[in-house]
């Protein structure tokens, strides 16, 4: 099967006053259509750079990013993005915020159909009745839900999530994880999730990529076999504990600490 997202040997460095600062070095990621990959790694290892590369917002120095069998050369409207900061436009209602991408991307939907679709997505994430509210009237979790709807409104085939739940409290976060599963069932997409939360990565993704410390390369890939729709209980099984253990171990290596050393600290 053809991979929808393919990242081949990507290297990238930022030019700083102190000379080039390499952030990515030999990145290999492949995501099949409908797959969901989570990318974890130490802070500052270039995870956000990765999202910008996939979105076509920047070009890598070396290597290639392929979407749908096409090399990414610039921004493309088949991508949806959501960030840690929901960046909703305060002067628009929630509904108008969700509809924003359709004002940029050419769409076959009529105005009425677009609005119906927006309302459907909002109800899917549990924001029914908030269509005409302003973002400032919503809680952090609700804003993130709205931001998710905006990322999905133009039916992107790739959804890029850059730590979208990072600023939320634990309970709201778990709520949103479940929402994500519900959304993916109704609105299939291929997902790339950047996160710091290992439990989040194994709960949402079917493939967890561990990046090494800067400059980042693919250090480890954990397959998380799916057994149908997941529930929060799945996080408290021996299998999940084993997966978390492996990931934690890999992160420690990525941070440049061997597990044995940690015991000695």
């Amino acid at each position: 099967m053809q991979n929808l997202i393919e990242i081949k040997g990507v290297k990238h460095a930022y030019q700083t006053d102190a000379g080039p600062l390499p952030v990515l070095d030999g990145l290999e990621i492949a995501v099949p259509e409908g797959g969901f990959v989570a990318v974890v790694g130490p802070s500052g290892c270039g995870k956000s750079t990765l999202t910008r590369l996939i979105a076509g917002l920047m070009k890598p120095d070396h290597g290639e990013v392929w979407l749908h069998g096409e090399k990414v050369k610039g921004p493309r409207s088949t991508v949806g993005m959501a960030f840690q900061n929901p960046v909703l436009l305060e002067w628009r209602t929630i509904l108008k915020n969700v509809l924003l991408p359709l004002e940029i991307v050419p769409s076959k939907l009529t105005r009425k159909q677009a609005e119906e679709r927006a309302r459907f997505l909002l109800s899917l994430v549990g924001l029914e009745g908030f269509e005409d509210k302003r973002p400032s009237e919503l809680s952090g979790g609700m804003r993130q839900r709205a931001s998710l709807c905006r990322a999905l409104i133009h039916q992107p085939d790739v959804l890029i999530l850059d730590e979208p739940f990072g600023a939320l409290d634990a309970f709201t976060r778990e709520d949103l994880w479940q929402t994500m599963h519900r959304v993916k069932e109704r609105e299939p997409f291929t997902g790339v999730l950047i996160t710091h939360d290992l439990r989040e990565s194994i709960f949402l993704a079917d493939q967890v990529v561990v990046l090494s410390g800067r400059p980042a390369r693919t250090q480890y890939v954990l397959e998380v076999p799916s057994r149908g729709p997941r529930t929060l209980d799945d996080l408290y099984t021996p299998v999940a504990a084993e997966q978390l253990n492996i990931l934690r171990h890999q992160i420690q290596i990525a941070q440049g600490r061997s597990p044995a050393e940690e015991g000695a600290e």
Partner: peptide, 29 residues
């Protein structure tokens, strides 16, 4: 203007002028 605001529209292929009218200008009001 936070870069994410720009990215939201730029990732969809919006022009600088569109970003100015839809986001930068109203946000500065």
């Amino acid at each position: 203007l936070e870069p994410e605001y720009r990215d939201i529209l730029r990732s969809l292929g919006a022009s600088q002028a569109t970003i100015f009218w839809k986001i930068a200008l109203p946000k500065t009001l």
